[in-house]
Design a binder for these strands. Structure first.
Lengths: 156, 156, 156, 156
DNA sequence: TTTT
DNA sequence: TTTT
């Protein structure tokens, strides 16, 4: 039986465009870097900015939506589960990382599908930067196998 | 300005007794290991248990309360902020870790102030704190019992 | 498109046994009265108890589980949606009410599966339902105990 | 002792400009109407929009900020406590209502400080529509007593 | 009454 | 790396 609640609730902005990959079975896995900034007073009473960068992963249908609609700078509400994981790096050393596995996502007003740093955002056709973001069921062939996670031993 | 929401909501059980330290200024810092277990179906439809161990830190007054009342096995509700941090180990290598900095805590029924590791736990009588565990009708009057389902004009 | 988040997170105790009905299609609808008590200081700095009674509704499978396992006094975690509704009473007057439509429920330690309509609940020994309350190390291995505070190079 | 969690988490849009009043002691009380819209499939599988209108109340400093920065159409994150209350109407009948007493607020991207029905929003000086929104401490005299809640017997 |  |  379930025994516990493990819930993260985040509202933040993407630091980069999402990255979407597909499993061999065709399931989308989209990862984003999400900044949440808060302010507290330090010991001297001065406001101190504090930014946390969350690695958020979206699977399946949510992964397709996130990959298609989110962009660098987008503001988004994410709800998910905190998961602590590890992998062995190329140097043979175990590395630990934490990710939020999203189960709910909501785009928020504003920057929406716009883009980030450059001025090219409005002119950049969606397909240009997102060939790997197409829904796999729309392709007759599965995505290349090297789009998987094994390519560089680093899961994020 | 604050820009974002970073909130963790956890209900779980302590894997060990809390560990409390004090800063030179006398502020309590209590750390616990909190297990949240959930169940999902794997690809074969079989229920699969999944336990995440959260490092939760309580500062100040909350740290004193957590250190005093929580014990190995205690069930607790925790709300806090997810914080990603790092330190340099004795081997000179940077290590990353994630912690939940609690800003709200609530002991849940059951194991309560009982405890774990030591034998001293039973010496603190359960009844001391038990009155608060009585049925909530002592907190205030419950809603009238007659607004039940049998009166079909009333939906609650 | 979805436009918004409407989420209630409650931890409280039942004021009465649940009431379960079934639709003609056989779907369970269980309703409970849930007390959440908090304390704040009044203007004079004295702690003031404040209890809110929530009407919580569970549909379908969740309704069956809630009806079967919850009892007067049970402590429970509920997550759901806040819904404002109205009905016309027998006196022809529109009545407004608010309910929480649950989409997640988690029984909490303590009164747990005990319960039942009558006064026999206390006669059912605590241990009967206690196995699930055992220390979580049976769910999986707890983190190593030696990463305590005494090793000052390690912050957790 | 606190005994329970009573938390609402909302992301929605204001249906109207906020309304701010001041207590005789000079504390701001701001009320908004917040729409949260979600979609579910009805029994026929067709998406069905569902909008809930929340009455949200902000006290004190938060009330001043909400009154000053929120506008009709603004998207906002609100966290607060669900409170069930009643008042006796002019017809002598008890009326029940539910409100969310906010303890955290976060403006979200987009409509921001804009507002208003027409296109004049960017040209509309703040003071024009918000004389009663000025922070009370900036006035030497307290706000008129009839700005209180007794004026029309209706608390929202 | 909002929003998409 | 985001955002205000």
């Amino acid at each position: 039986m379930a025994r516990g609640i493990n819930k993260a609730i985040l509202v933040g902005n993407l630091g980069n465009d999402p990255e979407t990959k597909y499993t061999q079975g065709g399931m989308a896995i989209t990862k984003i870097s999400l900044a949440t900034t808060s302010v507290r007073k330090d010991r001297d009473g001065n406001p101190q900015e504090n930014t946390q960068w969350h690695r958020v992963t979206f699977f399946g249908k949510l992964g397709e939506i996130a990959g298609e609609y989110l962009r660098k700078g987008s503001q988004v509400y994410v709800e998910g589960e905190i998961r602590y994981d590890k992998y062995t790096g190329q140097d043979g050393v175990e590395k630990f990382f934490t990710e939020i596995v999203a189960n709910e996502m909501q785009m928020l007003g504003g920057r929406g599908e716009g883009g980030g740093g450059g001025g090219e955002r409005m002119s950049r056709p969606r397909q240009e930067s997102a060939p790997q973001r197409q829904a796999p069921q729309r392709q007759s062939a599965p995505p290349p196998a090297d789009d998987g996670f094994s390519d560089d031993d680093i899961p994020f």
